[in-house]
Amino acid sequence: MTDGKAVSVKDTRFRTVDALLIALMVLPLAACLVLKILFTPEYEGVHISGALIYLQIDSFPVQPLLITESQVNSAGITLSILGLCLYLTHGLTVKAQTRRQLIAEWIVEKCRGLVDSNMGESWSGYAPFVAAIMGLSAFSSLSCLIGLFAPTGDVNVTAGWAVLVFFLVTWTKLRGGFLNYLRGFTEPVVFFTPMNFISEFSLPVSMAFRHYGNVMCGAVISALVGSALTGLSRMLLGWIPVIGELPLLTVGIPAVLSLYFDVFSGLMQAFIFAMLTMLNISNSFPAEAWEKRQKKKELRKMQKATVNG
């Protein structure tokens, strides 16, 4: 009797936590949608614009701080992904018993495998970072399917990620020693230093613009095609009394474009962003210099030990 009661109490608690986590998954996106509906101005015809500005704080040192749609949506998607991860890992057991644990294990194994095969075994500590960036990017691009403004269609968001990757790359290069890092700019000859500087700083720019350009251009082309279809249906079917006022041709046809631009291109860019992150980080590691430093450190330790001994 008592056992059964305990189990049922545990069960209800488990279910409540589950429901809360699902709410954490859904509510941020719903809040983003509500905000968008509240702030979107009325318009007619073709309307192509960047992210809406929700809030402007003027008393900021360099320039007024803008809280835009892309920042809010990005935060909402991050919360949503957090809810998804917590939901998938809720109630883990040693042997997988539930479907969600199998899914979670599959995701973790795939990410580990990807990082191991692209960066090497010694880099598997980067798997969570790569998985996080890939998931955030993929979900951000897919969020336009539910009518949100895709945060990756704003250059500021992707530029932020690219700067993060740039810092990681620089940090990896610095592991071979600061002098070695500076010497890397003068290779193969001193004459090439400006070129090396340009190529160093073109990495974040190209990564940011590649992702942003794909998503934004997809959105713009979809909007243009949608408006063109509206005009076409008005021209072809406008003479029919009631049906003529509805843009009938916009049913279905833009979905094909959306399938390519939003789903395929978005997922592809997420994968490419993660791939470039991995390759850039693992290629920037100065293996020889690092080994030399390690050997020197060991020698110094040995000398200290002998002196002390």
Binding site: I48, S206, F209, R210, Y212, G213, N214, M216, C217, V220, M268, Q269, F271, I272, M275
Partner: peptide, 24 residues
């Protein structure tokens, strides 16, 4: 190939971004 194509696409996209910015 898909990976390489998507990376090679970038230069075209730069032009597209500049075009869209010039118009909008």
């Amino acid at each position: 190939m898909i990976m390489g194509c998507a990376i090679a696409e970038t230069t075209g996209l730069y032009g597209l971004i500049i075009g869209i910015m010039l118009i909008f």
